[in-house]
Design a protein around this nucleic acid. Structure first.
Length: 725
DNA sequence: CTGCTTCACCTTTTT
DNA sequence: GGTGAAGCAG
């Protein structure tokens, strides 16, 4: 008898998890233990054994994970099976709310406020309430509100629970913020799940219907669920034929977003009938790597004790490299990447904060090693992309105040703050949208402003008429022209304008790609929904061979034969803002654990004795976590290029002497001339220009520069205040 | 009203 | 080092 595909290539524990298809199941999946395999095989098994595929709902945290799950499950089932849902918590909630908008008491066409919109609304609310931002930064107020929502704390209960001055203020802002969101007809990210939970809780009929639709529920990364998401899991899971939660408390890294490890630690108390399966065979890393990582994380208290076993034995020791300064760190890593003989795609450089990527990027560029940065500056966060999408949002729904505000004067139509304040005031007083208010005669406007408004309204009216029947890409292309937006950046060689045009082209391709993938029902509204929940991690093309640069957070779920975890210093790991809170310290430790366990064959940890932070030199000491990794598993190397200071701060590294002391030879490489032919430069008086010619060298270098506005000028390089642009 | 310059503040991590 | 807000000249 041949084995069914769903049970092939599984170890006994994995098989057990796949076969337990009724009632609640908790899979404790250690790093590299085949978690995704279990989930996908389980889906295949359910279908194989006769479950209705439309009743299967699988929820993850990222679109990327969902995509991976979908494709692997489909491959396993050998074709197209219509699974009920595979996607993120947010996208599940969004669909649910669109379906049940009436019951939820919201417009079915609500828009989604992104984090920039949220911040703008918070600032606006604080301004109106006279809450000073010096005492309470808008960003932290936004975070507090978000936290409250994720913990299912309403405005009322928030106000009731806050007696201190700051808390009272925040409560007021929270209240006004909610009103403003509602007035704009928008929900924020957190609302999506909160409102879904509220609706399921308050309406028995809706809940029962949804439970009938959801027969088998699978939750990935369960350790990262916050109170609200956990509530959703329970509301749906309690009525389902099976509920499978997969997670690993050692990889819980989203506490700051309201996630609570307790959910996974207490799963068997919440579901007393739950079966628990532990996956403890690691197929990814060699023994030394796993040993180091396990030793580190064993210092945490809030976890179930476990022992991960490396199925792949041996391997080389973990390399620990210490440098004088950040530049040498970046240089040595880039050089090693180039000399490793591995394909770039097999390598990842992981860091604690996004800002750390720059140094490595520069060094990789210098060596012409291709790389991709995960996250960082998000494509959909670019101003021009958001502007274009704002027009598209207006096309779908002119009453979208947030979008209206964003582009009513882009390109400039003579509408300054005076005019916008009038519209805002009229909207506030009548409780109607900016769009409606702007269509009526407003007192005290200049002729110029009137004209500007009517031109803008004509554009939006035209777009709105086309929104129903036109495809997203066609409408985007049209609106860029019709709004005069494209003209803003046309005919310019300015580096940034070129980049803007490219980004807009990229947006068009993304819309076309969307249409290709969703042949039916791929209208403007659907496209906007997809874009609202998209993140850059999804947009990154998996281009052939490139080194991956990523934060430790964004690296979860990935694996690479060779991994560099950089910046192992106090201040980064643990991060300076974690303070002495033991819970936060544990989270930082888990973060490093996640980074280390991404590595298959080789793991390199690096740190620097001093580095530039915000352009200022900072002296740094090694991460305390290094003391928690057994030194037998480490192979140390110290760079002492900087003789004058090496002795001075060598003791900073403290503790045991490095096993091996070996200077890394400084490499002779031609420094790229800071100012050469073709470089773009900036002059304090003449603005931007490009270097046409260079004569002489050293102190006598003379440069001929062609300025965009001032024309041709000649300088002695030494005296001219030219900066690379 | 617009576009440019200066200045403060910043960054932990993201759906 | 970079970005957004505020302040200023045209």
């Amino acid at each position: 008898m041949t084995e069914s595909p769903s049970l092939k290539d599984l170890n006994p524990e994995q098989r057990e998890a796949v076969l337990h298809t009724s009632g609640p199941l908790l899979v404790l999946a250690g790093a590299g233990s085949g978690k995704t395999r279990v989930i996908t095989h389980r889906i295949a098994r359910l279908v194989e054994s006769g479950a209705d595929p439309r009743g299967i709902v699988a929820v993850t945290f990222t679109n990327k994970a969902a995509e991976e799950m979908r494709s692997r499950a489909q491959r396993l089932m050998g074709g197209r099976v219509a699974i009920g849902f595979i996607g993120t918590f947010h996208s599940w909630s969004l669909r649910f709310l669109r379906r049940n908008a009436a019951a939820a008491g919201i417009s079915p066409r609500f828009s989604i406020a992104d984090s920039a919109d949220q911040l703008a609304l918070v600032k606006e609310a604080m301004g109106e309430l006279g809450v000073s931002e010096t005492m309470l930064p808008a960003g932290s107020v936004r975070a507090r509100i978000s936290h409250a929502k994720n913990a299912l704390v309403t405005v009322e209960s928030f106000e009731a629970a806050s007696n201190d001055f700051a808390g009272e203020r925040i409560g007021k802002v929270y209240r006004l913020y909610e009103r403003k969101l509602a007035a704009a007809g928008a929900l924020d990210f957190d609302d999506l799940i909160v409102r879904a939970v509220r609706l399921l809780t308050s309406r028995e009929d809706v809940r029962n219907l949804e439970r009938r639709r959801t027969r088998h529920l699978l939750i990935d990364e369960y350790q990262d669920t916050n109170t609200c998401q956990d509530a959703l899991v329970k509301l749906l899971g309690e009525g389902a034929d099976s509920l499978c939660a997969v997670g690993d408390e050692d990889q819980a890294i989203y506490r700051w977003r309201g996630a609570e490890v307790e959910h996974i630690l207490h799963f068997d108390q919440d579901f007393p009938a739950a079966k628990i399966v532990a996956l403890e065979r690691n197929y990814r890393s060699t023994e030394k790597i796993l040993e180091s990582a396990s030793a580190l994380v064993s210092h945490n208290r809030r976890r179930r004790p476990k022992r991960l076993r490396a199925e792949r034995g041996g391997g080389s020791r973990v390399r620990l490299w210490r440098f004088d300064e950040d530049r040498s760190e970046a240089e040595a890593v880039a050089r090693d990447v180039g000399a490793s003989g591995r394909a770039p795609s097999e390598i990842a450089i992981l860091y604690r904060t996004n800002a750390q990527s720059r140094g490595f990027e520069e060094e990789l560029v210098r060596r012409r090693i291709p790389y991709v940065v995960v996250g960082g500056m998000k494509f959909y966060d670019r101003a021009e992309v958001k502007d274009a999408l704002a027009y598209l949002r207006l096309a779908a729904r002119p009453e979208d105040d947030l979008a209206f505000r964003r582009v009513v004067n882009v390109p400039a139509r003579g509408l300054g703050s005076a005019t916008l304040d009038r519209i805002a005031e009229a909207s506030r007083q009548t409780g109607r949208s900016w769009w409606e208010v702007s269509g009526e005669p407003l007192a005290g406007l200049t002729d110029r402003a009137r004209q500007g408004i009517s031109r803008f309204r004509a554009i939006v009216t035209d777009l709105h008429e086309k929104a129903e029947s036109w495809s997203p890409s066609a409408l985007l292309e049209h609106l860029l022209d019709a709004s005069g937006y494209a003209a803003l950046y046309e005919n310019s060689d300015e580096r940034e304008d070129v980049a803007r045009r490219e980004n807009l082209q990229e947006l068009l391709s993304s819309a076309r790609e969307f249409e290709r993938r969703n042949e039916e029902g791929a209208g403007v509204s659907e496209y906007l929904d997809a874009v609202s929940l998209a993140t850059d991690a999804d947009a990154v093309p998996l281009s052939g061979g490139a080194v991956t640069l990523s934060t430790l957070h964004a690296a979860k779920g990935l694996e690479f034969p060779s991994v560099y975890v950089v910046g192992l210093e106090e201040g980064y790991l643990p991060h300076g803002n974690s303070g002495d809170d033991p819970d936060e310290l544990e989270e930082e430790r888990r973060l490093l654990y996640v980074g280390m366990t991404r590595a298959g064959d080789q793991l390199t940890l690096t740190l620097a004795g001093r580095r530039l932070v915000y352009g200022k030199v900072q002296y740094r000491s090694p991460s305390r976590f290094l003391d928690e990794i057994p030194s037998e598993a480490l192979e140390e190397r110290v760079e002492s290029g900087d003789r004058s200071s090496a002795a001075a701060y060598a003791p900073r590294f403290g503790g045991s002497r490095p096993a091996r002391f070996e200077a890394i030879e400084p490499e002779d490489e031609p420094q790229e001339a800071p100012l050469g032919r073709g470089r773009r430069v900036r002059h304090p008086r003449y603005g931007y220009g490009v270097i046409l010619a260079q004569e002489g060298s050293g102190e006598d270098t003379r440069l001929t520069v062609y300025f965009d506005r001032a024309g041709k000028k000649k300088f002695v390089a030494r005296y001219a205040d030219l900066t690379p642009a």
